[in-house]
């Protein structure tokens, strides 16, 4: 079987998933474990960040090791704007996306002139530069990070200080952004992007503006990561340099690889599994990273297509 470029979404799976996620607050309320709702919001926003990274890694063949730069930028834009009194979600969140997109445009324009290992290293280097920029901004918390005076104000009767409301707003945004990315993957643009992953030189030889296509994907992924970062700042009530650290970029890559690059929902699954493992294993042992590492090793060795490849047969044949 040839590799398929069109990624079907089974309506049954999408509806079931959304219904289960929508019912979650009622469940955590019933069992009186409100903390799980906070964890679920965290998983959702990381799922979005990982899904945006997968546009580059899984669909575009660009292994970016600096995606946290855009995630962290989104978080800092929300925190810095709030510290200057700009606390409306309707302006601060789009601003976070815009600034992250601009950062991606500058970093991408330079990094995308390289390929392979060089691309990995240069994206890593740029992200670390951004990390040190934010560490050195003493006015905005420096190494300690910048606490949010309060969560963004959404208006329209939505009080984001309520964990339940915040969860639903996060769910709506993550679902909408994922839906957009899914349409994108299956559009002419997404086809061209996947063609570049398969054979970049050939794509250029048949007449595609390869560099511009890659740069556009890089900017879109950066903007979506910025949105995830804006949500993260609200969820944790602060923006800190750790959000841009290379550890964070690595975590996002691990989510993508753990879940599987071949399927659209793979990275979201990877985000859920990684954060749940971290949560529950760290309750038993401080050496939780050892066990998470063992799981990752097992997946890479026995399920090279990622956890998502366990569902509905194999996608890749190459």
């Amino acid at each position: 079987m040839a590799l398929q470029l069109h990624h079907r979404a089974s309506p049954a799976v999408v509806v079931t998933l959304l219904a289960a996620l929508a019912a979650l607050p009622a469940i955590t309320h019933a069992i009186d474990e409100p903390f799980y709702l906070v964890l679920a919001s965290r998983i959702l926003l990381y799922a979005l960040a990982a899904t945006s990274l997968n546009l580059l890694v899984g669909f575009g063949g660009m292994v970016s090791f600096g995606h946290a730069a855009f995630f962290g930028t989104g978080a800092y834009v929300v925190a810095i704007a709030a510290s200057h009194g700009l606390d409306s979600a309707w302006t601060a969140w789009p601003l976070a996306m815009g600034v992250a997109a601009f950062a991606a445009l500058v970093i991408g324009a330079i990094s995308l002139r390289t390929r392979g290992v060089y691309f990995i290293m240069i994206t890593l280097a740029f992200a670390q530069m951004m990390f040190y920029v934010f560490v050195s901004l003493k006015a905005y918390g420096g190494e300690d990070g910048l606490p949010l005076p309060h969560r963004s104000v959404a208006g329209a009767g939505l009080d984001l200080k309520s964990d339940t409301t915040f969860y639903y707003v996060t769910l709506a945004l993550v679902a909408a952004a994922s839906g957009l990315l899914w349409r994108l993957v299956n559009s002419r643009f997404g086809r061209a992007l996947q063609g570049i992953r398969e054979n970049e030189t050939r794509m250029e030889a048949v007449g595609f503006p390869v560099y511009r296509i890659k740069l556009a994907a890089f900017v879109i992924a950066g903007a979506i990561a910025g949105l995830a970062g804006a949500l993260a700042a609200n969820q944790s009530d602060m923006a800190g340099p750790a959000m841009l650290h290379w550890n964070q970029s690595g975590t996002l890559l691990v989510m993508v690889i753990l879940g599987g690059t071949g399927r659209f929902l793979g990275p979201a699954l990877g985000a859920a599994v990684l954060l749940l493992l971290e949560e529950f294993v760290s309750a038993y042992t401080m050496h939780w990273q050892f066990y998470v590492g063992a799981v990752l090793l097992a997946v890479v060795m026995f399920l090279p297509g990622g956890l998502a490849s366990m569902f509905a047969g194999r996608r890749r044949d190459g």
Binding site: A2, S187, R191, E198, V206
Partner: peptide, 29 residues
């Protein structure tokens, strides 16, 4: 494009010629 079908190989080249690759919403399939 070694992993892709003959149909998809040729469709790429047709798409490149007919332009409008910066189309983000409509399903190409």
């Amino acid at each position: 494009f070694r992993r892709l079908s003959v149909r998809d190989n040729l469709a790429f080249a047709v798409q490149a010629r007919t332009g409008s690759t910066f189309q983000f919403w409509r399903a190409a399939a």
